[in-house]
């Protein structure tokens, strides 16, 4: 249907709508998801509307169980939406979208493959050119400082290294859209900082759209162009905050007054939503 969002379709009180010119890369219109569990119907997502520009880094920020992951599953086409429409490049998503690259919270590395082979599975399944893919895989691994670990099995890698391999795997086929579901959620704080920097480096060159799910306020601010705040279940878009910080992002920016102001703003939103309760 029409690729441009009509203003009245945004029934949610989102303060910021897409203002850029041209068609959105990813367009989510009135998408809901209802699960029929043992305890009856569970509304995971109330109608969600969101447009994402090409090359944009968008974080979805929300408390646990707000349907963030569900939204990503719908975007990837791995789960069908109960209603509404999702389009990527104007094409409706109703089957797994092989153009997307996916990273989960668990690294899901294949134990029986070395780091390099784990990245290469992407090329094997897609039957793309082996030599070319291998060169790209090596380049990606070296960008995240894993040159010496091509032949290491996942069991020989640390948690941070494993997640870096899984990000390289998702990036191998230069996906126009990257879907990441709390990829750094299981890592310690220091590893997390480094991986955020690694991710920004990996995303910089390509004109890649990143859909990044997190429940860390500073992480969302540090990485994103826009932060989409979701309410507790049933999830819907509460607010969209533009992050106006220069790129490339540097760790020192986290002490920037502007950064801190964003933290305050987002914390305030969650307080008003009842996610944070102070005495």
């Amino acid at each position: 249907m029409n690729a441009l969002p009509s203003p009245d379709s945004l029934s949610t009180p989102a303060t910021d709508t897409l203002t850029s010119t041209g068609a959105a890369h990813v367009s989510i219109k009135g998408v809901t998801k209802v699960f029929n569990g043992r305890k009856g119907r569970v509304q995971a997502l109330e109608p969600v509307d969101l447009d994402i520009r090409r090359g944009e880094f968008v974080s979805i920020l929300g408390p646990s169980g707000c349907g963030k992951s569900t939204l990503m599953m719908l975007l990837s086409g791995l789960l069908p939406a109960s209603s509404g429409q999702i389009t990527v490049d104007g094409k409706e998503i109703n089957a797994p979208n092989p153009e997307a690259g996916i990273v989960f919270q668990k690294d899901v590395l294949l134990d029986w493959r070395s780091a390099l082979e784990n990245v290469m599975i992407q090329a094997e399944i897609r039957k793309s050119d082996k030599a070319e893919a291998k060169a790209r895989a090596m380049e990606l691994l070296s960008m995240v400082s894993l040159d010496d670990f091509h032949d290491a099995y996942p069991s020989e890698l640390s948690g941070g290294m494993r997640q870096r391999v899984s990000i390289c795997r998702a990036l191998l086929h230069k996906p126009p859209l990257m879907l990441m579901d709390e990829p750094f959620g299981a890592l310690d704080a220091m590893t997390r900082d480094q991986l955020q920097l690694d991710l920004l480096k990996l995303c910089r060159d390509d004109d890649m759209t990143v859909f990044f799910i997190t429940h860390s306020i500073p992480e969302a601010i540090f990485l994103s162009d826009r932060v989409v705040v979701m309410t507790p279940r049933p999830g819907r878009v509460e607010r969209i905050v533009n992050i106006d910080l220069p790129r490339p992002r540097r760790l020192a920016m986290r002490e920037d007054p502007k950064f801190i102001q964003y933290v305050h703003e987002l914390t305030g939103i969650f307080k008003s939503l009842g996610v944070f309760r102070e005495e």
Binding site: S76, L78, A100, I102
Partner: peptide
């Protein structure tokens, strides 16, 4: 795991 199967399907 579900993730592994999702991963496989996402690669087509």
């Amino acid at each position: 795991s579900d993730e592994m199967i999702h991963l496989a399907r996402s690669m087509g």
